[in-house]
Amino acid sequence: MATNRAPPSEQEMKTRIITHMNTQHSRELSHYLRHYAGLSARAATASPAIQDMNLAGMTIKTRNGSTYNVPFSPPLSSWAEARPRVIAMDVTAREALGISDIYLTEWARPRGFDWIPLGGVVFYYICYAGLPWVAPGSAVWETLRVVFPGGPEWFLWIVRSIFWLVFGIHTVEVYLLDKWKLQKHGVPRFSWVWWKWAGNIFVEGVTTWKRLDSIIAAKRAQKEEKKH
């Protein structure tokens, strides 16, 4: 004979919400800390977890032991309101922080045409690093005299003259990729994924942007399909 189960108690509902948020939504907790508590991105992503929760708000703890109060405004009238409220709070936080709902969690290696600019920049850096070996009388010097227009003197002038231009352009591209793309799509600064994309654009340039944009577009298309 079937028996009716008692509805979950207030404490059980609270525990379920806290467990779910801590195990499935640490990213959202970091958004709360950044927007509602004013933490930096680095501090907010230091293993945030809800320490306690009531109808008035959440107490979120980070790895270093610091705790921050994030209020519900207005307070919840019951635990049934918790799910839509925390979702709405995340939307508000992301919009204020300029963070997309499409998260980039992977890196993609160069493909096809991407290898051409990457190879060109790598070759240039090799040339610059090899300048000490371009000396009169060396095998490299004599080879450049034969194969390089203008000879070794012109080679030396070109490689030296454009170094800071090349270095500066690619450094700025790292900065802009981080600011406009990686931070917007939830890539923690200086994480392994961040370093891969930053390293790519430093030696590859504009094709990195195109490859990253194609990944984001594919993720957005997948998300839209799930809605229908």
Rank of each mutant, 00 (worst) to 15 (best):
G168Y: 10
G186D: 13
T105S: 14
R27T: 15
A88L: 10
I17A: 14
R27F: 15
K184D: 02
V70P: 00
Y36D: 08
A108S: 14
P71R: 10
I201M: 05
R160H: 08
S161V: 09
A6S: 03
I50Q: 07
I169S: 03
A49P: 04
E10Q: 09
V166K: 00
R83Q: 07
G186E: 10
L182A: 04
T143E: 06
T23F: 12
Y36A: 09
S9Y: 01
P71V: 04
L55C: 06
G65W: 08
R211A: 11
V140L: 09
T208L: 09
P48L: 01
A135S: 09
W133S: 06
H31F: 13
V193E: 10
Q51F: 01
I18A: 11
V187N: 07
S100W: 07
M89S: 03
K223M: 13
G119S: 07
R85G: 01
D90R: 13
R145G: 10
L55G: 06
L182V: 04
T143K: 09
R83D: 08
E81A: 03
A80C: 07
S78V: 02
Y175I: 12
S66D: 14
S30P: 09
K219I: 11
E28N: 15
P132D: 01
K219M: 13
W141S: 03
R220T: 07
W133C: 00
E81K: 02
V134S: 00
N22M: 11
L212G: 08
M89F: 06
W194I: 07
N69M: 13
A46W: 06
